[in-house]
Write a protein that binds this DNA or RNA. Structure first.
Lengths: 109, 109
DNA sequence: CAAACACGTTAGTAAATGCTAATGCATTAG
DNA sequence: CTAATGCATTAGCATTTACTAACGTGTTTG
């Protein structure tokens, strides 16, 4: 059943729509509290805390406790496993179709 | 619970280690049959077929029936939702840390 | 001090997921 | 034709998952 690699935690974390939405909101806000994240979401605060734990464990976010609030912010290096994974297959496709490579090029023409 | 977007199917498909391994083997082989995929995996042929259905539905692979065999090959455009998703956040991070952008640059110095 | 607040944690539940074993359906081999 | 092969599909099962409701802990307010 394969061992648990970093790419595993990242993929699994971002696979759930609700959790991915939480991550996206954290990225867009420079910093955001749990209460603020709960407001926009359709779920309870407890659920948000659980998603945050998963994201934190995957290395995608970090928290900064301040008084009785906890501010979360994104951790860009957290996406490195995903970038590396895609880059690995970029190699294969570049040789064959220049497919993914072309897609990556679109990011910055 | 958010509507089902293309990024959803892609992320969900690649989240499972076994299924991601199947996808990786399809990419590395230009074409590969279900029987060949079954051999390397630790699961039954039925399980492989189920994973292939998920990958196909996500647009990540296509099949080419030939006699009583079915050859699978990767579909590079299938990863576009993932590339787009990352590019979207590349924008934010480039402004703030130049983090993900730097990572993407590593792909082709 | 007590009450309110922000957040994490837990038990319990319904639903989704990945798997096996078995079956069915074409296609090829003998 | 009959047997065997390659693959998809299905039912059933065990596990995981995302959620709510409730509670616990630490911090601020009055």
């Amino acid at each position: 059943m394969m061992q648990t690699a970093p790419i595993d935690a990242v993929m699994r974390s971002l696979a759930d729509p609700t959790r991915r939405s939480v991550f996206e909101r954290i990225v867009r806000s420079r910093e955001i509290t749990v209460a603020e994240l709960t407001l926009g979401s359709g779920v309870t605060q407890g659920a948000i805390s659980q998603h945050l734990r998963a994201l934190k464990q995957a290395g995608l976010v970090i928290d900064r406790p301040e008084g009785r609030n906890v501010h979360y912010r994104a951790r860009p290096e957290g996406l490195k496993p995903l970038v590396d994974w895609m880059a690995q297959y970029d190699l294969f496709w570049r040789e064959r179709f220049a497919g993914l490579h072309a897609l990556l090029e679109e990011v910055e023409p």
